[in-house]
Simulated assay, not measured.
Amino acid sequence: MKKTIIFSVVLLIGAMVWLGWNHYSTQQLHDEIAEHEVASIKLWGSQEREADSNEKQKIISWFNHITDIRKKNNLNGPTPASGIVIELNTTSKILILRSGDDFEVQSDGGAYWGRQSDLELLLEQLAL
């Protein structure tokens, strides 16, 4: 009985550590951005254009509310039909690429999948 309790406690602590590390590591992939950090936002798909100031505000807000962040280990896959390029004042870029049911984000911090319904809809519209 005592061994079962000890084993259960060790297993529970191990699971909590693993889940905590997994959450921490995925949160480190996605950094929010402020509007003053953004030099420009380019939208591309069937056409290419620069986002106007209203779109820029919305895209930054949507980007900051990405959920379901999952690390992507390699950049292999089909060529996306649409995307958003956020050019930061630091000359870094953040790419948001249409990828299946959700989207892929590529930045200096790494690559990951995420979900945000407004961004998904915009990427879908850009691909038409």
Rank of each mutant, 00 (worst) to 15 (best):
E55A: 09
I60Y: 00
H30R: 07
M1C: 10
S117N: 11
E124R: 10
Y112F: 15
L12Q: 10
W113K: 07
S46N: 13
D68G: 04
G45N: 08
Q28C: 05
L75K: 02
L119A: 03
K3I: 15
G110M: 00
K58A: 14
A51K: 00
Q28V: 00
R70I: 15
A111G: 11
V38S: 07
N73T: 10
K71D: 01
L97F: 04
R49T: 10
T91G: 01
V17C: 03
D31P: 07
K72N: 06
I96M: 04
E124Y: 14
M1E: 08
L97T: 07
E55S: 09
G20T: 13
E87N: 14
L123H: 04
E124H: 14
A127R: 14
L121C: 04
S40M: 02
P78I: 06
P78W: 05
L122Q: 12
Q57P: 00
S53P: 02
L123Y: 05
L126P: 01
S8K: 08
I84M: 03
P78K: 04
Q28A: 13
L97V: 04
L123V: 11
A34C: 10
P80T: 12
K93Q: 15
Q116D: 13
T67A: 12
Q125G: 01
L128P: 12
K3A: 15
Y112V: 07
L88F: 11
T90V: 02
E37L: 01
L95T: 01
V9G: 03
S8V: 01
I66A: 06
E35T: 10
Q47M: 10
V105N: 05
S8G: 15
E55H: 02
F63G: 04
M1N: 09
H23N: 09
L119Y: 05
H65R: 11
I94S: 08
L75T: 08
Q106E: 11
L119Q: 05
L75N: 08
K42H: 09
G100H: 06
S53I: 07
V105I: 13
D101E: 13
M1R: 05
L121E: 15
A51C: 00
G83N: 08
Q106I: 09
S107K: 06
Q28Y: 04
D118K: 10
N54S: 12
M16T: 13
N89W: 06
M1A: 15
W21F: 10
E120H: 02
V105Q: 07
R70L: 15
I6T: 06
G14M: 04
W18Q: 11
A81G: 10
T67W: 13
A81I: 00
Q28P: 01
T79G: 08
W18K: 14
D108G: 12
K3M: 09
L43R: 03
K72Y: 02
W62Q: 02
G110I: 00
G83W: 04
Q125P: 02
L75I: 13
T4P: 01
E37I: 02
I60E: 01
G77F: 00
G114M: 08
D68N: 11
D52P: 07
W18G: 05
A15R: 08
S82I: 05
W62S: 04
F63K: 00
I94N: 09
K58D: 15
R98N: 14
V105M: 08
L121T: 14
E104A: 07
K3H: 10
N22Q: 13
A34P: 05
A111Q: 12
S25A: 15
S117W: 04
G14I: 03
K2R: 09
D118L: 12
W21Q: 11
F63C: 06
Q106V: 09
I6H: 01
Y24K: 10
